[in-house]
Computed example of a mutant assay.
Amino acid sequence: MSRFRRTKKQVREILSASDWRDRLDELEACRPGDLVAPLLNLRLDKAEEVRWRSVTAFGLTADRLARASMEKARVLMRTLMWYMNEESGNLGWGIPHFMAEAMVRNDRVAKEFHKILSSYIFCDEKCDGNFLDHPELRRDVYWGLARLAGARPELVAPSERFLIAGLDDEDAHNRAYAAWTLGLIKARAAKPGLEALRDDGNEIRTFRDGEIVDLTVGDLAREALERMG
């Protein structure tokens, strides 16, 4: 069995376990560079919980890599950016999740790459953005911004007006994640848009605090308003 297959099997076993959080320390037995490819593969796993938990594991791995060699961490982040490029021929699903989690876990990575993540929702000609036309791929970016805002709101706050625009997105996940993020950065200018979503009953399934949860757009809009007082 190849090293990749052996490592992937080991990582998947950990992420599938009910005590997966407690077992994440087992990944430290592997070199961080050896974990990257298996985790990238597991982001597309058939099991929903494995897909989401691979995000947490990747963030820890990226942090280990950055603490050992910031240059290697930069190469890793640029690789993720390449996955988001149509010319790469790769699938970008889940990649923004990984980008965000790496930035949550490591301050230097966050400072150097947060503007890249935000640029995927920039939607006007005044900004040099990389706006994603595909609404389902934007979901991953909005979730990533919510995750980053929970840890480093000051890095997400400059994207406030694009997040406010996201409240009108046709995709329920995008509206919900935009609302979630705006609450975390306490964007008071978003209050009218959030008020309009109070009774939005469209349901989403997502990952928060290490758990898969079912919520509505309205739930997250009301939560955001409560955060603002």
Rank of each mutant, 00 (worst) to 15 (best):
T181I: 06
L220T: 05
N90D: 15
L155Y: 06
G144Q: 01
E112R: 08
K72N: 14
A146D: 11
L220C: 04
M228H: 13
G193R: 01
R64D: 01
E71W: 09
R53Y: 09
L40C: 12
P192R: 01
F113V: 01
Y83W: 15
V50W: 03
A149K: 00
L197G: 01
K8Q: 15
E154W: 07
A37T: 12
G229E: 13
V156A: 02
L117F: 03
C127I: 15
R53Q: 00
D19H: 06
E87I: 12
L39P: 09
A57C: 04
L15S: 08
G183P: 03
D169M: 03
L163E: 05
V141A: 07
G33H: 03
R227N: 15
R23L: 10
F4E: 14
A37K: 10
W52H: 08
L42N: 06
L65I: 03
R3F: 14
D45F: 04
K186Y: 03
A66H: 03
F162V: 01
R21Y: 13
Y120T: 06
L137E: 10
L194Q: 00
S54L: 03
E86Q: 15
D171H: 05
K46R: 11
R198H: 01
D209P: 08
S2M: 10
S69K: 04
D171I: 00
R227F: 12
A47F: 10
L91D: 15
D34H: 12
S69Q: 07
L27A: 05
E203A: 07
D209M: 10
A179K: 01
F122I: 12
V217C: 04
N90C: 14
L24F: 06
L197A: 00
D200L: 02
D107S: 12
E203W: 04
A224V: 02
D214S: 12
I14N: 10
T216V: 10
R188F: 09
L184S: 06
I116M: 12
R161W: 04
E170A: 11
E112F: 09
G89K: 11
A189C: 02
K111T: 07
G144V: 00
V156Q: 05
V104M: 05
A221V: 05
V141D: 08
